[in-house]
Nucleic acid binder design. Structure first.
Lengths: 231, 231
DNA sequence: GACGTTTTAGACAATGCTGTCTAATTGTAC
DNA sequence: GTACAATTAGACAGCATTGTCTAAAACGTC
């Protein structure tokens, strides 16, 4: 009864490592079950079985169902955010192969941040529980999407300053880039289906093509090409 | 016990009108509660109270909770589909005022199909229950999104044939049009918040501007404009 | 007013879930 | 080996919910 709920404050050692393993196992299983069943539909028994852990152990670590849920959301949020920013770090630095680089970048984003398990969890849970637990996801909203858009907008601004793009509103362009990237995948994701590599590539190509048609600095050439083809 | 569950097959009359009223009231309340709480979290008591109806009446009309859920989904699906197609009928017929017309069209779509109660219900329920009840939404998927994209693509094809647009893949363009239209609204919708009229208009303007930059036939002029501004 | 149908309120058993408690067992450090 | 912490299985009360049943009430038609 001492500090069962906060074992991370104790001294290091194998015992603690064992506890961390249990915690991680619980978090992973809980994320899975909450994602499938929602908060109300998820039962602690199911989570316990999937985590290969006694139900009582869950109560030892997280005193309530809601405490566990909060911890899961927190965990997924942190992981998703760090993944997203690490992906942003791979944004093309120069415009030498802009189209190919942007396609590859968008595929990475979609594969590792949007279409993966964490992305699915967040879409699903934010949408169903976001209104019931606003405080839970508010921090994510501030530190997640908004900062992502700003960061991506800044990256586009750099390309724009270099003359590779002609963008007036960088944040709008950033949102549109991601929206175009999802255009061909949305219905699939709505049903929880994971796209194939071919679908990911095709979606990214379509998105980047349109994005560069709208914002590419070589618009005159593209326009002339189109005019020549159609004329 | 005769045909309590199928009173629509009886002869006309005020009784039936009364029954229909009850049914409609139940459907409406159920849609509301299912949308807020999800299938597992919704209780029939809550639905009964919100419908101003006895719980037993619900069981008279829909023998099980799942039966009611199926009926609600069916109802919302039909309504949403018919609304969407009636909105498609307002697609600009000519390219006289293309940008303004497309903005107004996109605002109508977003306001009446995407951001309204039915749109919210569908997004939420398809995402949470779509995997559990695939048969429920499969019909919608076939008759909804796919047909919508085809229809919208055909409308773009008409404009394209008229020389107002330069589009290579009409279905891709249709998906991108809708995706761009949602770009600025997605986060809000994820949290279940309804956008203001100003936000709707701004989102539509940003979307149409980018769409026409990418696909507008007067791209040369637009490109020249940009070049002149930036040069 | 009489009749049939629908609705209603309430009680009811069955079920599943949450959260608590206990006693036994395992694992780890010294 | 001993002592301590963590884990486990099981039982348990409390609660909400589903679905059924019944008798009374309301409603519409004739």
């Amino acid at each position: 009864m001492k500090n069962l709920a906060t074992p991370e404050k104790r001294s290091d050692g194998p015992t603690q490592r064992g506890q961390f393993k249990k915690r991680a196992s619980i978090l992973e299983a809980a994320a899975d079950v909450f994602c499938r069943q929602g908060f109300a539909g998820a039962s602690l028994d199911e989570i316990a079985v999937e985590a290969h852990v006694s139900r009582q152990t869950i109560y030892n670590h997280y005193c309530e169902k809601e405490t566990l849920f909060v911890a899961v959301v927190d965990d997924v949020l942190k992981r998703a955010n760090s993944m997203l920013f690490s992906m942003l770090a791979t944004f093309p630095a120069n415009a030498a192969n802009l189209e190919e680089d942007l396609v590859a970048f968008l595929i990475r984003i979609n594969k590792n941040c949007v279409c993966n398990q964490d992305g699915k969890f967040l879409r699903r849970l934010v949408q169903t529980e976001g209104e019931r637990y606003p405080h839970l996801f508010e921090t994510w909203r501030q530190q997640g999407p908004d900062r992502i858009i700003s960061a991506l907008g800044a990256l586009f601004a750099r390309l724009s300053a270099g003359g590779a793009l002609k963008i007036d509103d960088f944040d709008v362009a950033a949102r549109q880039f991601l929206a175009l990237g999802n255009a061909d995948l949305q219905i699939m994701m709505l049903f929880g289906q994971a796209p194939t590599d071919e679908q990911l590539e095709s979606a990214a190509r379509n998105a980047v093509r349109t994005f560069l048609r709208a914002y590419g600095a070589d618009k005159l050439a593209a326009g002339a090409q189109l005019a020549a083809v159609s004329g």
